[in-house]
């Protein structure tokens, strides 16, 4: 029994272990495009900007693979409905990092389905308004919340034009090591930062979408002209949601 557990734990830690080995092989060498996992040793820099391209024409109506994958990856489904909460109210209060929306064009009636998530703006309104600086933009373009300094004022949620953020309304009993969370802080999509910092280059939503054969989500480094996401963006016309606000979002859409 205890042997099995040890093995299980090794499984849990295997990622970190291989990674550590990989870095010892080439100490000091750091390439952002390396595919083999290695925990980051150097601070992130602005040489990389993580971004995402969502092809709405490939996004299937009724498919929620990305949403479910995000929930599992980030432990969002470990949060239970508190006893006594009504279902309807709970749905409004539970956190969501990515969601499906379905749009109808007012003129042409054309239907579009697409996922909405934190757009990882270059000029994020949430960061501007945060009184303590807990909302911040990491050098590599991720817009994150430092939940050690978040006081739970929710001004960022007021400021976000995409309604991308959630507040944790309840005590969190089941916790995961990779994605900690607790009552009273605001959070939102991190582009699976715990993966990226281990040297991985995909997000859970992207993996799920590919696995289902849609390939609607391409994720990668916007500053690397050879990355899949840059290549795709140079080929198709892309739009920002609420481009009028000039936030230079890291998430772009085609076919919208």
């Amino acid at each position: 029994m205890s042997k099995q557990t040890d093995q299980g734990r090794r499984d849990f830690l295997s990622r970190a272990a291989t990674a550590a080995a990989a870095t010892t092989v080439a100490p000091g060498v750091f390439l952002h495009s390396v595919a083999d996992a290695a925990p980051r040793a150097e601070p992130v820099t602005s040489k990389v900007r993580w971004g995402m391209l969502i092809d709405t024409t490939k996004c299937a109506d009724g498919c929620t693979a990305c949403v479910e994958a995000c929930d599992v990856e980030n432990g969002l489904d470990l949060i239970g409905k508190p006893e006594g909460a009504s279902d309807a109210e709970w749905e409004r209060q539970r956190p969501r990092w990515i969601r499906e929306v379905k749009l109808k064009d007012n003129l042409t009636d054309r239907i579009t389905t697409m996922p909405m998530l934190c757009q990882h703006c270059e000029f994020p309104p949430c960061v501007d308004v945060c009184p303590t600086g807990a909302s911040f933009r990491r050098a590599d373009g991720l817009v994150l919340v430092d939940r050690h300094t978040c006081i739970g004022c929710r001004y960022c949620m007021m400021a976000c034009p995409y309604k991308a953020r959630s507040f944790i309304h309840e005590n969190v009993l089941l916790k995961s090591t990779a994605v900690p969370r607790g009552k009273g802080c605001v959070e939102s999509c991190t582009f699976c930062v715990h993966r990226l910092d281990q040297g991985e280059t995909t997000t859970a939503c992207q993996d799920a979408c590919s696995k289902d054969g849609h390939q609607a989500i391409i994720f990668g480094d916007l500053k690397d002209p050879n990355s899949a996401v840059s290549q795709a963006m140079s080929k198709y016309p892309t739009v920002e949601v609420r481009a009028d606000l000039k936030l230079n979002t890291g998430v772009r859409y085609t076919g919208l």
Partner: peptide
């Protein structure tokens, strides 16, 4: 109140969820 107090796997298995 946020950090797990025991080591947990990165992705919990779906059945268990």
């Amino acid at each position: 109140s946020c950090h797990a107090t025991v080591p947990t796997p990165i992705n919990p298995a779906p059945e268990l969820l």
